[in-house]
């Protein structure tokens, strides 16, 4: 589904990603972990197409298409979804209106008829029940004045509405208490099926107790330096990132 080859990218002339290789297949959950500044969020943003970042080398193929060639909204149309680490507030823009616009734009991209008001409402009610989200939140301006937990729930709700093929969760756990993490993770788990995939970007192992990954990759200095199964996350939790740093510098010294 997603195939990243030798991806190099940076921002304002500063190199951050130094050759990422990663393959994700339908039905899989991958986790990317790493210390602060290792390039986790950069990877998420580059995949979603943020223009501040420049890709200097490498390729990304998504469902057979050259992802890097597509505008951000086209990537969304293809089925890529980024749950933002810091969801953006847009004062005055009603959340439902926003989601409806998004759903119908994505449908248009996929050659589907736009949903009429009734079917949209039906779909929304269904997903609201699934995500345990209340109408009052959705009647407010997009993310404006939302608590951290509300913002993250809203992200996952949007994910449910847009039904992406690949969802990237960028530090969705940051700033959340354990109850909020549980709610958000439950939401994600309910959306998982054999045809879609999830890429979880996180600093801590805790989220992975709830969204259990098939593979864990450790990012350090813009490179995946170690890959493994969920046990790797536990090991990291126990030993800290220092052991990775030490191992890496040892390797680099050789």
């Amino acid at each position: 589904m997603l195939s990243i080859q030798d991806l190099h990218a940076g921002i304002e002339g500063k190199k951050i990603l130094n050759g990422i290789n990663l393959d994700i297949k339908p039905g899989e959950v991958h986790a990317i972990m790493g210390p602060n500044g290792s390039g986790k969020s950069t990877l998420a943003n580059v995949l979603a197409g943020r223009t501040d970042y420049e890709v200097s080398r490498g390729t990304v193929e998504f469902l057979g298409k050259d992802l890097l060639d597509l505008a951000p909204e086209k990537r969304a149309g293809e089925g890529l979804f980024l749950a933002f680490q810091y969801p953006v507030e847009i004062p005055g823009l009603n959340t439902i209106n926003f989601i409806k616009t998004a759903v119908n734009e994505v449908r248009k991209y996929r050659g589907l008829e736009p949903l009429d008001a009734v079917s949209f409402l039906k779909l929304m009610k269904e997903k609201m029940a699934l995500m345990n989200i209340e109408q009052s939140l959705l009647s407010r301006s997009l993310n404006e004045g939302f608590s951290g937990g509300e913002k993250k729930r809203n992200e996952v709700f949007q994910m449910a509405m847009l039904e992406p093929k690949l969802a990237i969760l960028d530090e969705t756990d940051s700033g959340l208490d354990i109850d909020a993490i549980r709610i958000v993770s439950n939401g994600v788990n309910k959306l998982r099926n054999k045809d879609n995939a999830v890429l979880v970007v996180t600093h801590y192992q805790r989220l992975l107790d709830y969204i259990v990954p098939d593979f864990v990759h450790v990012l350090y200095n813009g490179r995946i330096v170690k890959s493994g199964t969920k046990e790797l996350a536990l090991e990291l939790e126990e030993r800290g990132y220092d052991f990775i740093k030490n191992e890496t510098s040892a390797v680099e010294a050789v």
């Binding site: 951000p72 969304a76 969801p87 953006v88 847009i90 823009l93 926003f98 616009t101 998004a102 991209y109």
Partner: peptide, 30 residues
Amino acid sequence: IGEDQIFYCNQRGIPTETAVALIINGFAKE
């Protein structure tokens, strides 16, 4: 209109022109 606002809308599949119209209408709603 912040670039981050536009990007957020783009990421949800909304083209820039439509995103701007949405934001403007939100701004003028009152």
